[in-house]
Design a protein around this nucleic acid. Structure first.
Lengths: 258, 258
DNA sequence: ATATGTGAAGCTATTCACAGCG
DNA sequence: CGCTGTGAATAGCTTCACATAT
């Protein structure tokens, strides 16, 4: 997959590491808070602390964007806000549709942090005819039948799927066919999409299961437990002391043809 | 907490890579679906496709758990379901509290996939006195004043924070003080917690921003746009054609002392 | 003096490719 | 012969540590 080759030899070939991209929103949030407090400049150390990363990582991340700091001083808050916003594509407005207006869909529609940062809920879509016309978060719900028209009329390229798992793939297919190229999936299913379409997944139960794994380890410190089939030792790799880290570093990669 | 050193020298020192742990729930879900269809065995190739990863990765992942497959045949579905469940700590029951019963909290409380897999909503907690006693998803909401008592009475070690950002750190502190050691945070804030406490974050707006970044790249294929300050070329790392990847591979790893 | 920007080193994760077992 | 399990190779990410700029 992926095909592409190195394609650009020299001259700092753009190509921000994915891990860095995933942290930019974090920096942006911290910077926005500083901006609101009218803080003019900030050091990598301070900003890193506010974003919950270490300063070396932050500096390395910023180095991919360019040299936006001043040695001996730090970073200009406003300037950085602008540069990161631009890098993330937030200087333009992204119309978004939410499909599936159940509990979760309604919660998402009501979520403020949405509209604030470059995103605009262009439409809410649900399969239930009874919901049609009813306003949620001040936006009237429209019926799935009109999905394609809505996507096209509003130039939507980002879709949010908050339907039950069973409907997700079908909704996804229609979104993609209508021109959506980025999907945020809240349904607990693996979606398959053609090349060129981005899918990101948010999955409560996966997050909980990861927590349970670590939780179990903590408990298992010298406390053999469980019935279990013949399982040997139970060494516990020790020192997963715990990072104070956070965030879905989940990861869930790879390709899926079928 | 934490500390511990290598603690166990040889004999396959447990220590499953974090990236693998994050995929186990995915495999488990795919296996559960197979199990429900009474499929007896599955090959790494088939299972990988269902989970949306490639087979080499899946086999490597499973190799950390032990040798649960049969060469020339594949994996026994039921057996693998059990082994992974056990590894993730899902053979026991995890009482969970949800704090902040707004739109999102209510959606989470109503989310089915919760109870199904080892997790049980032990209590719903909200700061609004008007909510107290009102049932959400059949569970009466309790007031924040009783948080500590609720945690202790129910032996809760996993907490879900669905409050506004402003309240999150305070709620987090109280949860931790009362004995919670794993937190799933839906509030758009960086939480600071003592060593030994796990925090995972789910953040809608971060996910959207990551999508926007890639979306912008797609658009920028030879289509210079934007006002922008002096910005050079715009190579586009080429064929980030897109992995058909999904999931918050966001990542946000590592350690952070302060 | 002070804090950035970055090569180089060290880790972790993914992919390859094939030996080995059923 | 097929498919798992895994060393070895590769790629990607994080951390170190310091030269460099203000």
């Amino acid at each position: 997959m992926a095909t592409g080759r190195t394609h650009r030899p020299a001259t700092r070939s753009r190509g921000i590491p994915e891990a860095t991209v995933a942290r930019l929103p974090l920096y942006l949030r911290a910077l926005t808070a500083l901006s609101e407090r009218s803080v003019p400049t900030v050091s990598s150390e301070e900003l890193a602390a506010a974003a919950g990363v270490n300063s070396a990582k932050l500096r390395k991340d910023f180095s991919y964007l360019g040299s936006y700091g001043t040695r001996g001083v730090g970073y200009d808050v406003e300037y950085l806000v602008y540069q990161i916003s631009r890098e993330l594509g937030l200087t333009q407005d992204w119309p978004v549709v939410i499909v599936g207006i159940g509990n979760l869909g309604a919660a998402l529609a009501n979520y403020g942090g949405f509209a604030s940062r470059g995103f605009r809920v262009a439409a809410l879509i649900d399969a239930d005819p009874a919901m049609a016309g009813k306003p949620v978060a001040g936006i009237p719900v429209q019926h799935t039948d009109d999905l394609e028209k809505i996507i096209r009329d509003n130039g939507v390229s980002i879709g949010v799927i908050a339907t039950p798992a069973g409907a997700a793939q079908q909704v996804c297919d229609r979104l993609v066919a209508a021109g959506v190229t980025s999907i945020l999936n809240f349904a607990p299913t693996v979606l398959s999409v053609p090349d060129g379409v981005d899918v990101r997944k948010v999955d409560l139960s996966i997050e909980l299961q990861i927590l349970a794994f670590h939780e179990q380890r903590k408990a298992g410190e010298e406390t053999a437990m469980e019935t279990a089939v013949g399982d040997a030792a139970l060494p516990v790799a020790a020192t997963r002391g715990d990072s104070t880290e956070q965030g879905p570093d989940g990861d869930v990669p790879a390709v899926m043809p079928a």
